[in-house]
Every structure is written in C-alpha cells, then in structure tokens.
C-alpha cells in the first residue's frame, strides 16, 4: 500500500523514548526514497498518456487523471514523512547541544548518519560564534541560582584542575564546594554530582 513504509518510519521515531535518538534507519529511509521515484515515474507516464490521448491535463477527468493525482499525493505524503523524520531528529540533535555540550559521546554519535554529524558540527559552531559575539556562555546556569556555591562530589579522577584561580585536586569521590558556574560544566558531563541537602 502507498505510504506504508513512510508511515512506519515516522512511527518508529514517535514510539522512541522522548528526547532520545535511535540509530538512523537508513535502510527503510532509502526504501521510501525509492518509492518516491517510482511514484514520480508513474505520475509522469499517466500524464503523458493523457496528453497522447489529446486531452487537456488541467480539465480531463478520467481514471488516468485520478491515478496521477494519487501518485502525486502519495509522493507528497512520503516527502512529509521523510522530512518529519529528519527534522524531528535534527531537533533532538539541537537539544543535545544544550544538554550534553559541544562534544557528543561516542554511543550517541554512532546513531547519527553522516549528514546529521555534519549538522551537529555546524550548529555547534553557529552557537559558539553567537556566544562569542555576545560574550556570554549560555550553556551554563540552566537553573536559577539559589547560592553562588554548590557542593559536589567528584565521580572520576580528574587530577589537578584550576578553577576560580585555585588549583583543586579533584580526586575521585572527593567533595568540594565550587562556584555554580564552574561546577555546572563538570556536572553536565557526568564527571561530578551535586550534593543536595
């Protein structure tokens, strides 16, 4: 049936966990693309047939005409599904930039297709250039601050790190009181956890 594969593609995206990416389904994707070309061929041949019969394409109302219309509509629908699939994934990729930062961990990068990786890089560069023009770092300070300092526990051996003009020894499981803005970059990368209460 026309449009079934495209529908599957969209369903696959929609049934995935919100905000999470599944591997790019290039197999099914290519099949839908192929279906589009097929529709176009049939569409053109039906139009040609109408013309050969000496009928006006605009006003003719016969089976061929409606057939051509079905092919056109199926193609448009497939396009919408393909675009929705890519577009919605691109939205998640944008959101990853905010949640994880400018470097993607390998397990996520594996799920992206080539063009998506390029897109992430470009988008990240665009955001970086905006932030350097405006002289603000937007990826920190995601929640309203209650206290300028937060208590954090280091989850990995980070060695000596200079923060706030002081050299800190971030040994694993050590607890520190850091400036929120300094701590946030470590927390978002999963290297520290905030101790609450």
């Amino acid at each position: 049936m026309y449009g079934r594969k495209a529908c599957q593609l969209v369903k696959e995206f929609a049934s995935g966990e919100k905000g999470q990416l599944a591997p790019f389904n290039s197999d099914l994707f290519e099949q839908v693309i192929a279906e589009c070309s097929q529709h176009h061929l049939e569409f053109k041949s039906l139009i040609r047939k109408t013309q050969e019969e000496g009928l006006d394409v605009q006003t003719a109302r016969n089976a061929d005409q409606y057939g051509a219309l079905s092919h056109h509509l199926a193609l448009v629908r497939n396009k919408r599904c393909l675009m929705a699939y890519v577009y919605n994934r691109a939205e998640i990729i944008q959101s990853l930039l905010w949640k994880i930062g400018h470097v993607l961990p390998q397990e996520i990068e594996e799920k992206l297709c080539h063009s998506e990786k390029e897109y992430f890089k470009k988008h990240s560069a665009a955001l970086k250039s905006y932030m350097s023009k405006e002289l603000v770092e937007l990826t920190v300070d995601m929640v309203p601050p209650k206290d300028p300092y937060v208590k954090v526990r280091v989850l990995d051996d980070l060695g000596i790190v200079v923060c706030d003009d002081k050299a800190n020894n971030f040994a694993r499981y050590s607890i520190h009181s850091l400036k929120r803005t300094d701590a946030e970059q470590f927390i978002s990368r999963g290297l520290m956890e905030e101790l609450i209460g």
């Binding site: 890519v86 998506e116 988008h123």
Partner: peptide, 13 residues
C-alpha cells in the same frame, strides 16, 4: 547560520 545548516542537512538527506 541555523537555516543554512538545516537546509543543507535536509537537502542532503
């Protein structure tokens, strides 16, 4: 920059 990036991505895929 955003629209250029996304346009290119959509065109390529």
């Amino acid at each position: 920059a955003c629209t250029d990036g996304l346009k290119q991505h959509l065109e390529e895929t």
